[in-house]
Simulated scan of single mutants.
Amino acid sequence: MSLSSTRREARERAVELLYEADSKSVHPEDVVAGLPIRPDAYALELAFGVADHQTEIDHVLDRYANRWPVKRMAAMDRMVLRLGVLELATQLDVPPGVCLSEAVELGGRYGSTDDTPKFVNGILARVAEEVRDGDRPWMPIEVVVFDMDGVIRHWTAQAIGAFQDAHDLPPDAVGSIAFSEPLYSDAMCGRLTAEEWAAEIGRRLAEAHDGVDADAGRQMWLETEWRIDDEVVAIVSALRDAGQRVAVFSNATTKLEVDMGTMGIHELFHDICNSSLIGLMKPDVASFEHVADEVLGVAPERLLFIDDRHENVVGALDAGWHAVQMRSAAGIAAVLRRLQVPGAPDPT
C-alpha cells in the first residue's frame, strides 16, 4: 500500500474521530481510549492536532468564511475544514496541493451538500496562501510564552475554605469580593499593590459579614497557597536547555516576581511580563501588542502563547500571536513537537 493511500485512509479516520469527539464534547484521546484497536499514527496526529489547536484553527476559518462562521457550519464540513487547516499549517512535508485535493475529496464524501467540495477548496486555498507562502506560518516559533496561574501555578483553596468555614460564610464569600470589578482589574493592572488588594478584600469582608476581622481577612488572602505543576516546569526547563527562548505573561499582582523567586523558577524564564507592571491585562489585545513590541521585541507571528483560559487565547490570536489552550502537560508537549519547537519533550 502506498504512503498516499495510507494517509488518505488516515485522514478519513481522523475526520470520523473528530466527529465522534465533537458529538460527545470530549478530546479525541478520550474516544481512542475506548477503541479496541488504536488507529493509524497519522490519523491520531491529525485528530489530536485539530483538537489541540482548535481555537486557532477556528480563528483562521472565521476570517476566511466570515459569511458562514464555523459555529454555523454543518458538523462534518467543520471537521473537514479543521483537518485541512491543521495539515496545511503543521504537516509541511505534505505539498499544499495534496492537502487541498485530499480535503476536497473528504468534503465530497462527508460534506453536507454537493457544494461542500467547492466551499472547502475556496477557503483552504486562501489558508494555504497564508500559512505556506504568506506572512502567517505557524513555525518557526521564536518565543514560547506561558501563562502563570492555571498553567505553571495552581492556587489551592485551603486557606480560603478554612476561613469561610471558621466564620460560617457562604462558599463564594471571598471570591465574590476578590474578583469583583473594578477591584480585580485594579489589582491586575497595578492600580493597587498586592498588599492593598488584600487589605481591601479584608475590609469588604468585615463590612459584609458580622464577626469577620478585616486584618484576618487580609492575612488569609496573603497566605493563600499554591502548588507548582512540575511537569510543565520540566517542559520549560527542556526548552531553555535547548536554547529556546521562554517567557511568562501573566495577569498578576505586584508580588509575581517575589512569588516566582519563592517557587525557584524566576531564573528559568528569559522574560517575565507582569500585567500589574505594564498596566494592561489579558485578554485585552493591547496587552499582547505591548508585550510583543515593547517587552519581547518579536513579531507576533513568531510567538506561541499557552493559557488555560479561552478568552485569553482568543485575545492573543486577535493580536496576531499563535496560541493554544492548556489541556495538560502532555498536551503542551504535543503542541511543541507539532510546531517543531527545540527542546520539545519526546512522547512517553
Rank of each mutant, 00 (worst) to 15 (best):
L317H: 03
G97T: 13
Y42R: 11
G331D: 12
S2H: 10
R240M: 01
I332D: 01
V104H: 09
I152A: 00
H167M: 11
E9T: 05
R67S: 06
Y184C: 15
G107H: 15
L169A: 01
T253Q: 03
C273E: 01
H53V: 01
V291F: 12
H154V: 10
S287F: 14
V127R: 10
H154N: 04
E56C: 02
P95Q: 04
V145Q: 03
I152W: 03
E105N: 08
M76Y: 14
M76K: 13
P95V: 15
V80P: 09
V314Q: 09
L192D: 01
I201V: 15
E56T: 04
E105C: 09
H310W: 12
E12F: 10
G315S: 04
V248D: 01
Q91G: 03
F119E: 08
M260G: 00
D30T: 02
R8N: 03
W155F: 12
I265P: 08
V236R: 11
L336Q: 00
G34M: 06
V85I: 05
V258P: 08
A14H: 10
L88M: 05
M1H: 06
V70M: 05
L222P: 03
A65Q: 04
A43Q: 07
A74Q: 09
D168M: 15
L106R: 10
M1A: 05
I228G: 08
R78D: 02
T224H: 06
G343Q: 07
V335C: 03
P96A: 07
W221S: 00
L336E: 00
M1G: 04
V127E: 09
V291P: 12
P345W: 12
D62Q: 04
W221F: 14
G217E: 07
T254Y: 12
T262M: 10
D149R: 09
E289K: 15
G34F: 11
H322A: 02
L17N: 02
R63M: 12
S25T: 11
A333G: 14
L83V: 08
Q219R: 13
A316N: 03
G49S: 10
V50S: 04
E231G: 05
V335H: 07
L100Y: 12
V324G: 00
P171I: 14
R191A: 01
R218H: 11
D271K: 07
R245W: 08
T156P: 06
R153G: 04
W138A: 07
V248E: 00
M326S: 02
A41Q: 06
E105M: 11
W155A: 02
A178E: 15
I265K: 09
S23D: 06
